[in-house]
Design a protein around this nucleic acid. Sequence first.
DNA 1: ACCATATATGTAAGTCCTGACATATGGTAC
DNA 2: GTACCATATGTCAGGACTTACATATATGGT
Lengths: 192, 192
Amino acid sequence: MTTLGYAILGLLARESLSGYDLTQRMKGRVGFFWSARHSQIYPELARLEGDGFVTHSVVEQRDRPDKKVYEITASGLQALKGWITQPPPEKPTRDELTLKAYSVWLADGGEAARVFREEGLKHEEQLARYEEIRARMEDEWREGISDPGSPQFASYATLRRGIIHERGYAEWCRWLAEAVGGEVPISGRGGA
Amino acid sequence: MTTLGYAILGLLARESLSGYDLTQRMKGRVGFFWSARHSQIYPELARLEGDGFVTHSVVEQRDRPDKKVYEITASGLQALKGWITQPPPEKPTRDELTLKAYSVWLADGGEAARVFREEGLKHEEQLARYEEIRARMEDEWREGISDPGSPQFASYATLRRGIIHERGYAEWCRWLAEAVGGEVPISGRGGA
DNA sequence: ACCATATATGTAAGTCCTGACATATGGTAC
DNA sequence: GTACCATATGTCAGGACTTACATATATGGT
């Protein structure tokens, strides 16, 4: 089984979905640190069905094309449960921005500061979006997020991972931008 | 050009190295958030040479096989410099442990706590190794790490990224292990 | 003599993933 | 009418990466 397979099973364990729905879920990586395109999802669903981990039923729709709704089987649920508590194989971290930082000594300080400041902003924006979702979760799911047996708790847990990740990344970008460039471009302080 | 190509150029900009040396550098990801095996490095070196970004000279050795030492060219250095200050394409984050967390509501609390506690420990150990290197750097390179134009500074910057990453990851693992399992196995407290 | 290890350089098969190509239904805007 | 978009499902070519295969030199151990 591939990790993508477990990602799909993880979504289907919460609710039955079509390939199209799965694709939408895999795009918005909120609360879900994995992603895939439909070109990967459809063949994987076929494989999962071949292995007996999911089944599908065709749902006819009036105002849009028919769809295949996939449901997780008992066998699929068992496979998923077994996978969760197995230590993941450690994969090498590949981060292009950090790789750029490794050669930042060759670059112009001002230009480098601009790049790291911009990237830092992106992470701060993502952090803000996550914090917003967190506030909503803590407000609307008060019971769910305190019960480790509920899917709401699990969603909250991945969201916390996202928040910590973005916070750390943004902090590092700010520090590096400051260290290489110094001057922040407020109103009339042209660097030239 | 591939990112791997820039990774290699980034190393060669600091010192000339053989394919074997590059492979060793790419294994120990300390201060360097990228990795590659020799089976990727050798063909990439050939491509870089074909593009005129590196050149090699054969160095004969008495007590071991001869080697090809690669040197970055002016053209290679230019390409590298241009790449550093270009915003990196955003790639989806794929983290298998976080994906497991997304389905943790299905798992046994005790088993899940064990996994996340163990993974947390790994990150704490890596953090300790990084902190050790940091202490040595701050001690031995006092001038280098405060000069953004020195390779020492760049190494220090990537190390800081590593420290922040491991610290955040370990923190999250501890929190999650505590939330799903609670009881930490001290001496004689069998969970059965 | 034989074996393992470190050094040193390559190739090949297979997997995962991306981006592009491909097709079809029905609604809305012009 | 026609063009575009959202829905819906697929295939295919190619790139990046991993694992395994493959070869060669020299040292040190048994």
